[in-house]
Design a protein around this nucleic acid. Sequence first.
DNA 1: TCAGTAGTTCAATAAAACCGAACTATTGAT
DNA 2: ATCAATAGTTCGGTTTTATTGAACTACTGA
Lengths: 109, 109
Amino acid sequence: MQRPFVHPAVDDVSLESVLYALADPVRLEIIKRIAGGTCAMNCSTAAPADLPKSTQSHHFQVLREAGLIRSERRGTEVVSVLRCTELEKRFPGVIGSILKASDKAKKKI
Amino acid sequence: MQRPFVHPAVDDVSLESVLYALADPVRLEIIKRIAGGTCAMNCSTAAPADLPKSTQSHHFQVLREAGLIRSERRGTEVVSVLRCTELEKRFPGVIGSILKASDKAKKKI
DNA sequence: TCAGTAGTTCAATAAAACCGAACTATTGAT
DNA sequence: ATCAATAGTTCGGTTTTATTGAACTACTGA
């Protein structure tokens, strides 16, 4: 049987794990897409297309266990949402400034 | 001869490398000490005391190459300062909110 | 010049990431 | 109900990265 998704309580989310999760270019891109889009994304849509499925799955697991996203199965696919409100409460300004900075950095290139 | 310290130009500093550098508990602690203290620290003072010298040195190298600190030899020791102004300009709010969040997280425990 | 202190570099080991292949879960068609 | 297709997970082996003891470099002060 497949294990159900595990989401840490917001108070158990550590700043280090959040930063670690966002430090990877692929994962930062995923978070940007989830945050910027309809606010709910399946894995294949949110991750770069050329990335192997197992690697995609690994990255979503890291984001989930870091407390950044909440995932839920909907039919054959898994939909993930950013835990923005909770995270903003726990680490004010952190996610927002990072997302803003990543946009700006992208424009520069 | 020992190589001189290399510091990236502020425009070459990537958000990912900054987040990566700060994602490690030891390095985050170092940055907090450098930021909170007299604003200039040698390695032994800024790093946890029980950490092997080679590991300390490695962590300072990561912070340096990520663009977070500027290091300079002063006699036998190396003094490092946070590149706060430059970083604030490039990634507004990022370092500040992370430092603030890390203080709060510490108090909770 | 010599001893002591502060940090770096090297090389070997330990830990983590990556990805192909096999597996699970769900849906929709026959 | 069964079968094929889709979406994602898990496993295991390989590659990459981190850690650290030991040797080395740089500087200071006696």
